[in-house]
């Protein structure tokens, strides 16, 4: 047998791969291992490194501090500063209220302004119907407001309030005399029926100069109160349904027979088929006297209907 030493001596010139190199090549040509080595290993190493680094609480704290610092640095740049609040579409009073309630202290960075919170806070104001908040170029916090328009004055349990045509509270009112141009409504639950009240006020146009206001009774129907300087107020009791029709009926009666000029306390049209008048005390006696003259005998009782 030849000596085996030449196997070691001739290693450099031997073109044959060693058993290890041969196996490595075959290993490398296997797709699964290839993918594992080329993708799996680096991913594992990176995840392991990052995981070990984050395992230390100090490192986590340092990273959080660094992030906060960077954020502050960027947020503090003058390009992001907001210095003014511009309010469009609001009366001076409302604008003042908006400035008060908006949860921002200017100047501030635009990163720190929570537009949603501002929007929510402003929308909470009763006088504001719709609001749009945005940051405009030039460092201006722009607030576009649509105000509620007061339609009636409500003398409710909590004082005198202004309501819009949907019944939403707009503002409080010191005295009724502050807004004489608006119709007055009263009674509990009146704010829930403001549209009907407005329709009644519109229907009561012919007697607008005498209209004192509307009273909600039992949270279900309206009374119309007309002022009469000579004799005292007159009340029209309207039904729950078809109140406007009933009021028009009463007004038609007035036009035909001059109803309101008579000495009446109230006109009851709760049953529209049977309008009922209620006379004042003197008028009852007068009616009884006239009837006794006509019929010759006094009527029993003293109630005329």
């Amino acid at each position: 047998m030849r000596p085996l030493r030449h196997l070691w001596r001739g290693r450099a010139g031997d073109p044959a791969p060693s058993r290890m190199a041969y196996r490595m090549q075959r290993f490398w040509l296997t797709p699964v291992y290839r993918a594992a080595v080329r993708v799996g290993l680096p991913v594992f190493a990176v995840v392991l490194g990052v995981g070990l680094w984050f395992h230390d609480a100090d490192n986590r704290q340092r990273l959080a501090d660094l992030a906060a610092h960077l954020r502050d640095e960027v947020a503090g740049r003058p390009e992001f500063a907001v210095r003014l609040m511009a309010i469009d579409g609001a009366s001076p009073v409302v604008a003042e209220a908006i400035r008060e309630v908006a949860p921002v202290r200017l100047p501030a960075s635009s990163f720190e302004i929570d537009l949603d919170a501002v929007r929510a806070a402003v929308a909470e104001l009763d006088a504001v119907a719709a609001v749009d908040v945005r940051i405009r170029a030039g460092g201006i916090l722009q607030v576009d407001v649509a105000e509620r328009v007061p339609a009636v004055v409500w003398r409710g349990p909590g004082g005198i309030d202004l309501l819009d045509n949907g019944g939403r509270r707009v503002a409080a009112l010191a005295t009724r005399a502050a807004r004489p141009d608006l119709p007055l409504i009263a009674g509990e639950g009146a704010d829930a029926a403001v549209p009907e009240a407005l329709a009644l006020v519109a229907a009561a146009g012919p007697v607008a100069d005498r209209l004192r206001g509307l009273v909600r009774v039992g949270e279900r129907r309206w009374d119309v109160v007309l002022a009469d300087a000579a004799r005292g107020d007159q009340t029209i009791l309207l039904p729950e349904r078809g109140a406007v029709t009933a009021l028009e009926l009463v007004l038609a009666l007035d036009a035909a027979q001059d109803l309101f000029a008579r000495d009446l306390v109230s006109i009851d049209v709760r049953n529209i088929h049977r309008p009922t008048l209620r006379l004042r005390g003197q008028a009852v006696e007068e009616l009884a006297r006239i009837r006794s003259l006509e019929w010759g005998t006094p009527l029993p009782g003293g109630v005329g209907q």
Binding site: P17, L29, T30
Partner: peptide, 22 residues
């Protein structure tokens, strides 16, 4: 046999390298 084994390994490795598959 060890010599032949080496020669076979050389040939197989070369062919695998050219083919790019195991």
């Amino acid at each position: 046999m060890p010599e032949t084994e080496r020669a076979i390994r050389t040939a197989v490795r070369g062919a695998q390298q050219m083919a790019g598959v195991r």
